[in-house]
Computed example of a mutant assay.
Amino acid sequence: MELARRFFLQQVARVTAGAALVPLSTVANAGINDQPPRRGGDPKKRYAMLIDLRRCIGCQACTVSCHIENQAPLGKFRTIVSQYEVESLESGNAVQFMLPRLCNHCDNPPCVPVCPVQATYQQEDGIVLVDSDRCVGCAYCVQACPYDARFINDRTQTADKCTFCAHRLEAGLLPACVESCVGGARIIGDLNDPGSQISKMVEEYRGELMVLQPEKNTVPHVFYLGMDERFIDRPSAAPELWEIRDGEGQELGYEYAEH
């Protein structure tokens, strides 16, 4: 846990160069209501994911496997890979940039305190979950998430999102997206275990890792290696449009347009 917090403070410093860092206790509460007590999960663990963008080829295997594993409704995804065409800072040529997106399982998740029925909650191991039996579908958490990682499930009428495939982790399996990644770009593990692959990579690449929107003070636990700094905030680049149609061939819209 402390390893991740130190990394987060480095990210804040990167964004707010020259500004004095406030104490961690202040950062944890900045602009966000008090967090309810965490419940469930192993308190000895802190799960996080590291995405090596140098290995991501944009094949969408993670998107498809997650969709099948978690039976998301048509046109809704718990994880996606947004694809952008950007100008290379080195050559000036147009290049493809892949940006996998999912719930960041923040250490200070803004989605949790806004839930009026405590359906959205955080486990002791850091994983943020939704109790579908409690959720009333008010979408407060959807609006509170700065990463566009939540949606209202059309079938259940409750909030839906990435769970790090907590049901698979409990069974000793990898999340569907990690298992299906052909390039080995997604690494998940316990930050509290210094021997885990993710802990070793965080330590090795500490100066190169980035998180999305660190200035939001959410302490994200999805780290990116090989990130274009222009994308730590909402990029000004226009995403490529993917045409989505239903089983009858009717156009549903363009996925990724809002990412």
Rank of each mutant, 00 (worst) to 15 (best):
S196W: 09
C135S: 06
D160C: 05
S196T: 04
Q197V: 10
I198G: 03
V178E: 10
R168S: 05
L173N: 09
E204G: 05
A139K: 14
V136E: 02
V182M: 11
G183Q: 14
C181L: 10
D154S: 13
N153K: 11
G183N: 13
C162E: 01
V136Q: 02
A166T: 08
D190C: 08
C141Q: 04
A166W: 06
D193C: 11
D148M: 04
Y205T: 05
H221F: 10
I152R: 11
C181W: 09
Y205Q: 02
V136K: 06
G137D: 00
E203A: 12
G183V: 13
V130Q: 07
T163A: 00
H221L: 14
N217I: 12
K200E: 02
L191G: 06
V142R: 13
A144I: 04
V182A: 03
C181D: 04
N153S: 09
G184S: 07
K161E: 00
R186M: 14
A159F: 00
I188G: 04
T218W: 03
R186W: 10
E208D: 12
S132C: 02
L174C: 02
Y140E: 02
N217M: 15
Q143R: 15
E204W: 12
A139F: 00
S199W: 08
Q213T: 13
C162I: 08
G184K: 14
V130T: 14
Y140A: 06
T163G: 01
A139N: 11
M201T: 02
V211S: 12
E170T: 07
C135Q: 08
